[in-house]
């Protein structure tokens, strides 16, 4: 019965896939009409960055990116609402600890490089933030219960930093008459760098905190007994 259902679904989905493949084929067979590509590259010089993807993310379609930071924050808030973080892992042995001592600073350094290079080559806040997040994950796996994150109050400010700076810059530009996230000529580069730096930190901290998997504070205390883990709701 169950297998029959799976088979039936498989057949239906194969038909759907065939239909979609046909639609994609028909779409690609069309003469490429007006596309955003030409427009996006024609106005690239005005955006303050020379990497077209960064120009789309932080200038043309910056509003999407702001909301995407909000999505990331919403996921973390949801994770925090589910309870305190589980206890961490055992301390790593000397070999792993020595490796971690090398990898984490390197990841942070590489993150900084990716952030800067994003202005003119592939890179940017998300790639850099992901590296910072990876550094946090490695720290947590190697037995650092807080994954290198500060206490709860500071952590809360750090996770809102990205969307916060973004929204405040946008709102400030709106209040000064330029329109929301409409960068004044000549200042785009520095405003984008400011937003991206804040976003990098926020993304790194948010990803790490999401990996820790629960509200910071007493719940992450690694004391080996589990007795101090407060049970809050």
């Amino acid at each position: 019965m169950k297998r029959d259902l799976a088979l039936l679904l498989g057949i239906l989905l194969a038909l759907l896939a065939a239909l979609l493949l046909w639609a994609l084929h028909a779409t690609l067979a069309l003469e490429p009409g007006p596309r955003l590509a030409e427009l996006a590259s024609a106005r690239l010089e005005e955006t303050g960055v020379s990497n077209p993807v960064t120009a789309v993310l932080l200038n043309y379609r910056a509003y999407d990116t702001l909301l995407e930071l909000a999505v990331l924050l919403a996921a973390l808030l949801g994770i925090w609402s589910l309870g305190p973080a589980p206890a961490g892992y055992q301390r790593s042995g000397p070999a792993l600890a020595a490796l971690v001592d090398w990898i984490v600073p390197l990841a942070i350094l590489a993150g900084g490089y990716l952030l800067w290079v994003g202005g003119h080559a592939p890179g940017g806040a998300f790639q850099a933030g992901a590296l910072l997040g990876a550094a946090g994950v490695i720290l947590r796996l190697s037995g650092e219960p807080s994954a290198g994150l500060p206490g709860e109050p500071a952590q809360r400010w750090l996770v809102v930093l990205g969307a916060g700076v973004f929204a405040v810059v946008g709102g400030g530009l709106l209040a000064s008459g330029f329109g929301f996230l409409t960068y004044p000529p000549g200042q785009a580069k520095w405003l984008i760098l400011l937003i991206e730096s804040a976003a990098t930190v926020a993304i790194g901290v948010t990803l790490t905190a999401a990996y820790v998997g629960g509200r910071p504070g007493s719940g992450t205390a690694h004391n080996g007994t589990g007795q101090s883990r407060t049970v809050q709701r």
Binding site: L77, V159, V160, A163, G164, G171, G179, F180
Partner: peptide, 23 residues
């Protein structure tokens, strides 16, 4: 028409502030 962003921006800023100031 610039003001159209406000119904999105105001709660977003409020949500960020409420995150940062849990008490």
């Amino acid at each position: 028409a610039d003001l159209l962003i406000l119904p999105v921006l105001v709660p977003l800023l409020g949500g960020l502030l409420a995150t940062a100031l849990p008490v």
